[in-house]
Design a protein around this nucleic acid. Structure first.
Length: 175
DNA sequence: GTACTGATTTTCT
DNA sequence: GAAAATCAGTACC
């Protein structure tokens, strides 16, 4: 799928090439400690953005996937830049296209996704960020083009194979 | 290419 | 008071 952000400055969009699943009873999931002020959106209805601040300085965005009360989501870890590349380069302060969205903190910076987007719907086209099923010129990957590995940057439940990325993509955070 | 380190601040106990 | 779903820069190979 694709993630799109629109504001006065311009529209930026990318194809999701890497993500990680965080599920119920998963010790690495923010929801595992129960509902708190930070994670309440995780327990809400699916199809909404859960945005949190990582290490005090980077925003990371999830798509809530579980039914209300479950606390499940998919962390978006990397995008292939599709639209608004010039704007992404300015925001990221680099020309290198493979480095614009190749990490959860990078892609939020490139698309200007902030804590203000926490809780917004990803399925209603009227808002600032939303998801799209398809874009012209892009074909969905076949199942044999999806690589499954362990998740990155966590200390608990690090052996669960819940990270997925598109095989051969130059835009993932790591191969 | 890999390995290590500092930046920075919210969050919860 | 410690941990944290990260990143950029540096050193080294």
């Amino acid at each position: 799928m694709f993630l799109v952000h629109r504001e006065e400055e311009g529209t930026t969009a990318g194809r999701i090439v890497e993500d990680e699943a965080y599920v119920e009873h998963d010790q690495a999931a923010h929801s595992s400690i129960g509902m708190t002020g930070r994670n309440r959106v995780l327990f809400g209805p699916p199809g909404h953005a859960y945005v949190f601040l990582s290490y005090g300085m980077h925003s990371c965005v999830n798509a809530v996937t579980g039914r209300e009360g479950k606390g499940e989501a998919v962390l978006l870890r990397a995008l292939e830049p599709v639209q608004g590349i010039g704007l992404m380069q300015a925001r990221r302060k680099t020309e290198k296209v493979t480095s614009l969205c190749s990490g959860p903190g990078k892609l939020t910076q490139a698309l200007h996704i902030t804590l203000q987007h926490n809780g917004v719907s990803l399925t209603e086209n009227s808002l600032q960020i939303w998801s799209a099923d398809s874009m012209p010129g892009y074909e969905p990957p076949n199942e044999d083009e999806i690589v499954q590995t362990t998740r990155i940057g966590i200390s608990k439940s690090k052996d669960l194979p819940f990270r997925f990325y598109i095989k051969g993509s130059r835009f993932v955070s790591r191969k």
